[in-house]
Design a protein around this nucleic acid. Structure first.
Lengths: 147, 147
DNA sequence: TATTGTTATACTCTATAACTATA
DNA sequence: TATAGTTATAGAGTATAACAATA
C-alpha cells in the first residue's frame, strides 16, 4: 500500500480511515509544495499568523497556534536566519519580542500561498465545484465550526 | 488553538486544512481508544492484516501496509511479547516467518475493533446518517477509490 | 546473486524542564 | 511571585544501511 494508490477495501469504506488518509495525503503534498521555498508547514503557519497580527509577542503566536513555546523559538529563529522575519524590542515590556515579517518574508509568504493553493487544486481535482462545497460544509460541521 | 476547539476562520473555510485537521483529530482519538488495550495504531493495522491473511510472511505484511521492514519487525516483536501473535517456521522456505494471531490476539483485536467503532461513532456524531454517507462518498472519490 | 528477516544507527519532530531577564 | 523567552535534553516514531541466513 502506498500513498499514490487508492486504499484497498475494506479500508476505503471506513469514513474514519478515509478522513485520516486524505488528511495525511494533503498534508504531505502541502509540505512538498513548500519545500522548494525552504519552508516547512510550521513556518507557513507562523508566517501567516504574523502577517495577520504584525508585532505579536511570541506568546501570542503560541496561543494562536498549536506550536509550543520552545518550538516557536526554533521556528522564528529559522525565519530570522532566512531573512523572512524579524524580532524587535517591545517598547512597553522589555521581556517581549515583537515579531514582524520582512518585505522578503511577505513576498515569500505570498509565493508559498500560491504554491499551497495549486496543491489544493490538484488534490481536489476529482471533485466538481458543487461536490467540493458539499465536502467543505460537512467537514466544517464535523469540526464543530459554525455554518 | 487546541484540538478540542473548532478551528478559527479563515482556516475553517479551507477544505485542505479541514481535511487535515479532522484527519488528525480522528487519528488521535483512535490512538487514545487503543491505548487501554496496550496497542498503538500500527499494532491494530498489522493485526488486522494478519487476521485477513493468516500465515503471511513478514514481507507480505510490509507490502500490504505502509510500514517498512524494520518497523514491522519491532511491531511483531511487541505483539509476540504480549502474546497476541506468533511467528512460526514456514515449511517451504526457511527464510520466511509465517505470522499468526493467537486466540488472545483474536479476542484483543475484536475488542480493539469495538473501541475503534465507538470512537468513530462519537466523532461522526454531528452528522446524520445521510450526511455521513455523502461524506464517505466524496472522500472515496477524493482518494481515487472506485464507487 | 537475490531475498527474508534482523540489528544498529541516525534522523525528524516535538515536548519537558530548567534557566535568565524582566515585570 | 509571575511572565516572556530561551536553552538543553529527552522522547516517540520512523527510516537507512549493514548484516546473517537461506534461496
Amino acid at each position: 500500500m502506498r500513498f499514490d494508490d487508492p486504499p484497498p477495501e475494506p479500508l476505503a469504506s471506513a469514513p474514519g480511515f478515509l478522513l485520516s488518509w486524505n488528511g495525511q495525503r494533503i498534508a504531505r503534498s502541502f509540505a512538498a509544495a513548500l519545500e522548494p521555498l525552504g519552508l516547512r508547514p510550521p513556518h507557513f503557519g507562523v508566517m501567516t499568523l504574523i502577517e495577520a497580527n504584525p508585532g505579536s509577542a511570541q506568546r501570542e503566536l503560541v496561543e494562536r497556534s498549536m506550536i509550543d513555546a520552545s518550538t516557536m523559538v526554533a521556528v522564528i529563529d529559522e525565519l530570522e536566519e532566512r531573512g523572512l522575519a524579524q524580532r524587535r524590542a517591545d517598547p512597553g515590556d522589555r521581556r517581549k519580542r515583537a515579531v514582524y515579517l520582512t518585505p522578503t518574508g511577505k513576498r515569500t509568504l505570498e509565493r508559498a500561498r500560491t504554491a499551497a493553493m495549486e496543491t489544493a487544486r490538484a488534490i481536489f481535482d476529482p471533485l466538481d465545484q458543487r461536490e467540493l462545497e458539499t465536502l467543505t460544509k460537512l467537514l466544517r460541521k464535523l469540526a464543530g465550526a459554525g455554518p
